[in-house]
Design a protein around this nucleic acid. Structure first.
Lengths: 350, 350
DNA sequence: TTGAGTTACGAAACCGGTTTACGGAGATAC
DNA sequence: GTATCTCCGTAAACCGGTTTCGTAACTCAA
């Protein structure tokens, strides 16, 4: 079924041209601010456009001009404030450039990821930004073969050479967090996370290095695996508390995980930082709302979104990037959840 | 600049037709599963399509067919898990119907909201779902005049007659929460929220009714205003604790606000539920992660998204809805943050 | 007045599909 | 063998813009 002509509610460019007494190309030039139109004519056309409330037909424009005026952003999930922050960074940068953002979440499902790519390919896009810490990056090749400009945020690392990517200095963050705990006097420091993400592997490396530099033995039992959700923080903490020699400090993989750590401590009748120090990663808005407020490694997440978008815009504009990989600095934010360990920790007569 | 023909990476329907030895319309029929193609021919065309990896040009299709295959969803913000849940409901329902979802957040900014509408009008859409608890609904008229099918979630109430909307039974939720606190023995029960949202006004009405039915006097000082974010919960609680006769229970406007309440209590050296009972609204995933786990009024948020989408799909299909307004039931979820008040509350010798 | 150089504008082609309307082949009926 | 009815398949028009390219008109110099 074809749309009715709707001569009333939806004028076409041809109609505007007829009313203004000019041709379609002239209206097109006015709409796009192109030269080659006398100022008198331009004004007249603009008046008619305003009077009739003319809105360009986007699909027709996309078809003939090959531009969509929008960038597609795909993230793993929305529930997570981490992604929400990245999205805001992308959003505000695109807005400044006059582009719209089309947002999709994959929830880490292969099927949704494929649907997203199919749609991007079918309907076209001016560029794509992918925030997929996991494995899905494999399909990336398909987008590249279509010549779609791309930028990645917080990726796993194996990136094709002509794709821009933004990450954080995870090693330094892991190092700083661990060093902070060591300087407070902790010796048995646990870490949760990995090993599937590149970012986590780097943090763990920072943790190990900090311990070694401080002359503290690295105990593999204190390294608990876990994803980026609260549940794994909870379970990892229960495991850790069950060890014959439990840790006096826990370095969670991210702030959400730290919430799970809090939960497990609470259930065990323990408090942070009196019984166990807790440190997170990300510095999401909620981390300061927790009780006690969470000490964490701040990652300028929104800034990462901004940077990725700026790089994408430059690729779209056809500029050459001098660097395809950028890492933003992390920094330690000390709040209430870390403190010195209980005295005489080794004999545990607390 | 026109796209190059890209004879290699991007076949057109005409090319597929030529290879398969048929005409464009035949390929079109095969792509759309329309009748009028012999099965031998259909198979042959399908094989060529698969071999060449042909993908229909979405903009061209949208232009000629007037369908986009996508529904536009606009929410206030993404940071809030409340919206994330609605989005998931919409997402899975659309997916089942074979439609894509295009998501945008307005952050309650007039300008962003207008941009969203402009884009929807310019690029077209098969339908729109709006999750805007605030004032922005005013512009809705513009979409309606373009004949775009629409559904609202959790609106403020003044809805045009031919627009579908989904809400929750806020009055009943407010009533149930208050009744729960009263039955535990509380008499000085504070409530935070409103007055700008219809949903909050209804909850407050439920709260008042429950108090009156229990013969408890309604003290206006115990009603603190506040938006749906943690900060207002924090501030309201500080105000409440400063009252000459502070409350023994606090009914927060939502779960995020309850986090702020926890924070203020913690700072004041008080604990829930021993010193003050706390109850939230929404039952977001984080509410069970808080310490203590939050008693709250469960709102089937995801279900609201599902329902709104189902109504929209029916409008798109041209069906008549028997009811344009649906309200889903709320229910009380009792966890750890509520308990009996300290004994001898009136003289407060606790 | 004429020729060269600009500038303003429009006719027509084009983007890649969908839809309409029609013609030809084959099946069935008589 | 011919008339009628289906079923397949295609030519051509169409959706609503953008872009190319040609030309008329206008300016300026000689």
């Amino acid at each position: 079924m074809r749309k009715q002509l709707a001569g009333y509610g939806k004028p076409t460019m041809a109609e505007i041209a007829a009313i203004a007494g000019v041709s379609k190309p002239t209206v097109s030039k006015v709409m796009n601010g192109q030269p080659g139109v006398a100022s008198r004519t331009r004004e007249r056309v603009e008046r008619v456009i305003a009077e009739r409330g003319y809105v360009r037909h986007g699909a027709a424009r996309a078809l003939s001009a090959g531009r969509t005026g929008a960038v597609n952003l795909v993230v793993k999930e929305l529930d997570n404030p981490y992604f929400a922050e990245i999205i805001r960074g992308v959003e505000e940068t695109l807005e400044r450039a006059g582009l719209s953002m089309i947002l999709t979440a994959t929830h880490d499902e292969e099927r949704r990821h494929r649907r997203w790519m199919a749609r991007v390919i079918e309907y076209g896009t001016d560029g794509a930004i992918l925030v997929l810490p996991d494995e899905q990056v494999a399909h990336l090749e398909l987008l590249r073969s279509r010549g779609i400009p791309m930028a990645l945020v917080d990726d796993r690392g194996e990136i094709p050479p002509d794709v821009a990517s933004v990450g954080a200095t995870n090693f330094a963050g892991g190092f700083a967090a661990t060093e902070h705990l060591v300087s407070l006097g902790h010796r048995r420091i646990a870490i949760i996370g990995g090993p599937s993400f590149k970012s986590t592997r780097e943090r763990v490396a920072g943790y190990r290095t900090a311990l070694q530099e401080a002359g503290v033995e690295v105990d593999p039992r204190l390294h608990q695996p876990g994803g980026f959700v609260a549940e794994t923080g909870y379970e990892a903490t229960r495991n850790l508390l069950g060890l014959p020699e439990p840790p006096t400090a826990i370095f969670a993989g991210n702030d959400m995980q730290a919430m799970g750590v809090y939960k497990a401590l609470y259930e065990a009748g323990m408090r942070a930082p009196e019984d166990v120090s807790v440190i997170g990663f990300d510095d999401l808005p909620i981390s300061r709302l927790l009780t006690p407020a969470l000490t964490t490694v701040r990652q300028p997440v929104r800034g990462m979104g901004v940077l990725a978008t700026q790089m994408l815009l430059r690729i779209i504009a056809g500029e050459r990037l001098e660097t395809r990989r950028v890492e933003v600095a992390t920094s330690l934010v000390v709040r209430e959840s870390t403190g010195p360990p209980k005295i005489d920790d080794s004999s545990r007569n607390g």
